[in-house]
Amino acid sequence: MRARRMTSLLAAALLVVALGACSDDGKDEPKSSPSTSSGTPGETTSGSADPTSSGPTEVEPATGPLVTLHSTATLRLPASVKWRTYGDKTTVVTIKSVDFAPGTEKFYYVDVTEFPQIDDNLARMAELARESQEGTREIPLKVGANRTIAGVEGFVLEGQGPNGQFYEWGGLDADNVLTTVAFVVPNGLDLEEWVEPVLASLQWQ
């Protein structure tokens, strides 16, 4: 478990360093005005994100255990399974469950992180995060349409491979702190059923 948390820390640190190296390209990605849309994510085949997606907002927030990041956000997990949480109230929180579905051998993972950034270009962050997560998860990923969660616009990564289904949302708050919520869900299960209630429960501190 310590190795997995160190991998998350390393991936996020690489994102910060890479953004610093290219920050002189200009900050050409404006932040969105706050909204409360939590639409169904779209996806593109290019490395750049589409305009912010919109979609159904009638998603019941998860009501299970509370997860707290060090300074940016809280969220809840689905109440239907048992969870093990590592690093609660730190900058990297990892949650997993072996009680995800009968006969399922894969874990269900949720990784939640927060890290200060020196850039505010979401498209560039999305591409750097995609490269990092593909190397870590060994799942081919695409950059989806940006979406707004609890008033903060963020990038979307999604994909599927032998190791499961992957979905990540990464939002940049007014203090340029990037908060990411990444999911790995076993193949054969409904990704949205497990992702959307968690994102709907997210609240900023």
Rank of each mutant, 00 (worst) to 15 (best):
P61G: 12
T63R: 14
G64H: 03
G64E: 05
P65R: 10
L66R: 06
V67N: 07
L69A: 04
L69E: 00
L69D: 01
S71K: 13
S71I: 04
S71L: 08
T72W: 12
T72L: 09
L75A: 04
R76W: 01
L77F: 10
L77N: 08
L77M: 15
L77R: 05
P78T: 00
P78E: 05
A79K: 14
A79D: 15
S80V: 08
V81L: 12
K82C: 04
K82E: 09
K82Q: 11
W83D: 02
R84S: 13
R84P: 00
R84Q: 15
R84M: 08
R84D: 03
T85D: 10
T85G: 10
Y86W: 04
Y86S: 06
Y86N: 01
G87K: 03
D88R: 09
K89A: 15
T90R: 14
T90P: 03
T90S: 15
T91L: 09
V92Q: 02
V93T: 05
T94R: 09
T94E: 15
K96H: 12
S97E: 04
V98R: 13
V98T: 11
A101W: 14
P102Q: 13
P102S: 11
P102R: 07
G103T: 05
G103F: 03
G103V: 04
T104A: 08
T104E: 13
T104C: 14
E105C: 11
Y108M: 14
F115L: 13
F115E: 06
P116T: 05
Q117Y: 08
Q117D: 10
Q117C: 09
I118C: 11
D119H: 14
D120N: 12
N121M: 10
N121P: 04
L122C: 05
L122Y: 02
A123L: 06
R124W: 08
R124A: 14
M125N: 01
A126Q: 10
E127P: 00
L128K: 00
L128T: 03
L128H: 01
L128V: 02
A129P: 01
R130D: 03
R130N: 02
R130W: 02
E131P: 00
S132N: 13
S132E: 13
Q133D: 14
E134M: 12
E134I: 10
G135A: 11
T136Y: 09
T136A: 14
R137P: 00
E138K: 15
I139Y: 06
I139C: 03
P140C: 06
P140S: 07
L141P: 06
K142P: 01
K142L: 07
K142G: 08
G144F: 12
